[in-house]
Deep mutational scan, measured.
Amino acid sequence: MQRVNMIMAESPGLITICLLGYLLSAECTVFLDHENANKILNRPKRYNSGKLEEFVQGNLERECMEEKCSFEEAREVFENTERTTEFWKQYVDGDQCESNPCLNGGSCKDDINSYECWCPFGFEGKNCELDVTCNIKNGRCEQFCKNSADNKVVCSCTEGYRLAENQKSCEPAVPFPCGRVSVSQTSKLTRAETVFPDVDYVNSTEAETILDNITQSTQSFNDFTRVVGGEDAKPGQFPWQVVLNGKVDAFCGGSIVNEKWIVTAAHCVETGVKITVVAGEHNIEETEHTEQKRNVIRIIPHHNYNAAINKYNHDIALLELDEPLVLNSYVTPICIADKEYTNIFLKFGSGYVSGWGRVFHKGRSALVLQYLRVPLVDRATCLRSTKFTIYNNMFCAGFHEGGRDSCQGDSGGPHVTEVEGTSFLTGIISWGEECAMKGKYGIYTKVSRYVNWIKEKTKLT
């Protein structure tokens, strides 16, 4: 034993070699072989497995989906700052455009905790909710729209109204504003409101030439003092309507412009014939205590009207009353817009006519005020429907199939267009061939041609 100890002390290297040989010859039971080890760690190889990531292109799944990435790591994937920024906006807080917040056709661009709407022409605001041009839906104005110097929408209202708090709607500024039905039992019968379409306001006024200088022999019209197929109006439903009495009662109609003036057809009036105007009328054979009678003290036909040349060209006249009318729910003026808007309103496509005229061709006159909704007829169809001249200051309205029309005794009465609950004068009943005849239409004086003249002559002093 002493000898062994001496050998170990003198030859430590020998001992180490012996131990190493023993270990190498022993069977290893701690580690699995290569094949079995792979069965336990069965993990798919990654895209760049075996390579240094710093030297390969980034992978979106590896960089940002398996674990949260930084902007720089995302930049490695896209290799483009702009594309990385677009991805980053949604990656950080989701897609803010998912709810489609942009209105009126706006395009949404996502941002971090926010979004941006790219608005089409005519709109602005956070969600493109603000109209900035009158060309689109009248700028959301209830009545009139004008573009300011910086191309912003400025709404306005006709006389007797003021802008509401929203700067879009119009509200009454006087007790009985024009064009409004205020009798409670008839307010439910107000005709369907007309909503502004998209309009090209630059070209809204037709490029028409008034044929002022045409000389033409007097034409022989049949029954051209021209509501057939209409309905009984309720008291106060058309408070701007008046009836004219002269040699015979209810020979023509008219509309209240203001307390002192009536507008009617020029062919209705004769110099030297006494005319009485009755406002607030409903049943011409009954006294309903809503009527107001006034005498006409002055007749002003349009300066281009000449019955000797043509009885229905420039067929418009103004009547001055001896005493002002007292405005109330049964006696209310009709609204008159400017030339541009009167023309736009007419193009809405349908209007209402009213009167006490004959209820059928050569038949009896109506006792109760009649009204009828009539569609506008395109000019080409209008011209083809008659052998008589249709001037540019006239328009056609009615039904091709016949059966409904204005008729004798309705002449001078109103053709009105309702705009968001307020009625505007767009025409004056003038003439036609018979009444409600198939293929024939009622012919009306186009008020847009005469609004400046009306307003100039009827100013209240």
Rank of each mutant, 00 (worst) to 15 (best):
Val181Cys: 06
Pro175Phe: 04
Gly409Thr: 07
Glu456Ser: 09
Gln216Gly: 06
Gly125His: 01
Phe55Trp: 10
Met6Cys: 12
Ser25Gly: 10
Phe78Pro: 15
Gly253Asp: 04
Ala307Pro: 12
His400Arg: 14
Asp111His: 08
Asn203Asp: 06
Cys97His: 00
Pro235Trp: 07
Asn113Val: 07
Ala308Ser: 14
Ile336Gly: 00
Phe251Lys: 08
Cys134Val: 03
Glu208Tyr: 14
Asn166Asp: 05
Asn59Lys: 10
Cys18Met: 11
Arg3Asp: 06
Ile316Lys: 00
Gln143Gly: 01
His302Val: 02
Ala149Gly: 07
Asp110Gly: 12
Thr271Pro: 12
Val278Cys: 05
Ser217Pro: 12
Cys108Asp: 00
Leu20Gln: 02
Phe388Asp: 06
Asn304Thr: 06
Glu171Gly: 05
Gly160Phe: 02
Tyr161Ile: 00
Gly253Lys: 09
Val195Tyr: 15
Pro12Tyr: 14
Gly412Ser: 08
Asn295Asp: 13
Gly421Ala: 06
Ile17Glu: 02
Lys51His: 12
Phe55Cys: 05
Glu54Met: 09
Asn151Val: 08
Leu19Pro: 02
Asn304Phe: 13
Ser365Leu: 08
Thr290Trp: 10
Glu35Phe: 08
Gln96Phe: 10
Phe221Ile: 14
Asn38Ile: 08
Gly229Ser: 14
Phe345Asp: 01
Gln408Ile: 14
Gln241Asp: 03
Gly122Arg: 04
Gly236Trp: 05
Ser114Ile: 04
Glu281Trp: 11
Tyr450Val: 01
Lys152Thr: 13
Asp378Phe: 02
Asp232Gln: 08
Ile256Pro: 01
Ile454Thr: 01
Glu129Gln: 11
Phe238Gly: 02
Asn100Leu: 07
Ile443Thr: 06
Arg43Gln: 14
Thr290Leu: 06
Phe360His: 14
Asn295Ser: 13
Glu76Trp: 05
Ile454Cys: 01
Ser423Asp: 03
Asn203Gly: 11
Cys134Asp: 03
His302Cys: 02
Phe144His: 02
Val359Asp: 11
Leu14Met: 09
Met437Ser: 11
Ala26Lys: 02
Gln219Glu: 09
Pro324Ser: 05
Leu372Phe: 14
Ile299Trp: 06
Glu171Phe: 09
Pro177Glu: 01
Ile214Ala: 14
Asn80Arg: 09
Leu367Ile: 11
Ile262Asp: 00
Arg46Asp: 07
Val257Arg: 01
His34Ala: 12
Ser114Asp: 14
Gly427Ala: 02
Gln2Pro: 12
Glu76Pro: 15
Gly355Thr: 07
Cys382Thr: 02
Val174Asp: 07
Thr445Val: 10
Val447Gln: 00
Gln216Leu: 12
Ala192Pro: 05
Leu20Arg: 02
Leu425Trp: 00
